[in-house]
Computed example of a mutant assay.
Amino acid sequence: MSERIYSDYLNEYCKDSSIFLVKESEGRVKNFLNLDQEIPDQYRWRFSDLNSIVKQVRSENTRQGLNKIYWTDQSRNIEAYIIMTWWRGNELVRSCLNGLNRREVIVPAIAARSLLELSTVFLLNANTLEKNFKKIMFPPETIVISTDIENLVAKMIWGTRYQPKDELLTQTNIMTALKKLAKSPGTKDLMPTYDFLCDIAHPSFIGNTSYWSHIEVINPDGSERRLMSRLTDRQYNTEITDKTLWALAWSSTCIYNAFIIMRDAYSGLLKKI
């Protein structure tokens, strides 16, 4: 993708920014969109429930064959998860990008906040699976399973905080995930940016300021006539745009990296069997 994806206004806004990720944001989003061209619009997930697994196991009489059934099933579920997560990320990236190009404020900021949540969980899951898959070995005549990985994969796909059917499927609180990732090198801006964008998503102060333009008149008694505007050329607080662009660039990179990490992890595991 060689064409520009930022509007003239947004390109001008970013080119001289003192914030590295804002200045480099277009390139990072383009990198994400380039990979998206390789992702299918439809995907056929071969899913096996417990009864199906039992049937498959009955037709296999070697330990290596049993390992292959088990880990192939886990890998199919992981692949389905990364496709679903990529699609979600792609919708959010494009929504955020389109809004920014139209000089919108609130909707791109909310999309950017969601991107931070999605990319954080995706990257943490990718790192966990990669770390564990590298450790798994298949000694001769040994059946190898992992309930920890089973539970993680189940939570990745079916985890929820809305009336979970099982305690194991209670999704981890997003703040727990964000604070965990924020301990990694190079992530010092993650939590401040997320907290800032949350205030925009909520009926709070920062979201209100996006409509404040400027002071037109200071009256003799010291009161001010402040212009508020919903027009796209208003002089809103540029910090909102900076934080939105930072989150867009950071999340696009994290989702891209997590997709590659997780795909390579389960592919590498299956080659060991």
Rank of each mutant, 00 (worst) to 15 (best):
N127D: 12
S223E: 00
V153L: 04
A258M: 11
R88M: 10
V144R: 00
F122V: 07
A109M: 12
L169V: 04
I83G: 05
S95Q: 09
L245N: 07
L269A: 02
L118Q: 15
T62N: 08
T172I: 15
K155A: 01
L97N: 05
T176Y: 10
P185W: 06
W45T: 12
S229Q: 05
R63P: 03
G222T: 05
Y13V: 09
W45Q: 06
N101G: 08
W246F: 15
I145W: 01
E26P: 00
K135Q: 09
T209A: 06
I143L: 15
K68E: 12
G186S: 04
S17V: 08
L169H: 06
N125D: 15
V217G: 00
Q74C: 05
Y162K: 15
R4W: 00
V57Y: 14
A249P: 05
L181K: 12
D166W: 07
I5L: 06
L269C: 08
H202E: 04
I145G: 04
A109R: 11
Q74I: 14
F133E: 01
L97Y: 10
T187G: 02
A249M: 02
L97V: 08
L197E: 03
F47K: 07
S2K: 14
L270Y: 13
T128E: 10
D16W: 02
N77G: 04
G89V: 08
Q163W: 01
T120F: 03
S7C: 10
N257R: 15
P40F: 07
K68I: 13
Y6S: 09
C254W: 14
F133P: 00
I149N: 03
I110R: 03
T187R: 15
C198R: 05
V217M: 03
V217L: 10
I157N: 11
S119Y: 12
E12Y: 00
V153W: 07
S229D: 07
R63Q: 13
L269K: 09
S114V: 01
N151E: 10
R88Q: 13
R63C: 04
R63T: 12
D148L: 00
S223N: 06
I200Q: 12
E150F: 04
N31Q: 13
F259Y: 15
L152D: 03
L169M: 08
L97G: 02
E24Q: 07
D189P: 00
D264K: 13
G222L: 01
N173S: 02
N237H: 09
Y70Q: 03
S59R: 13
K131Y: 05
I78T: 15
W158H: 13
W250S: 07
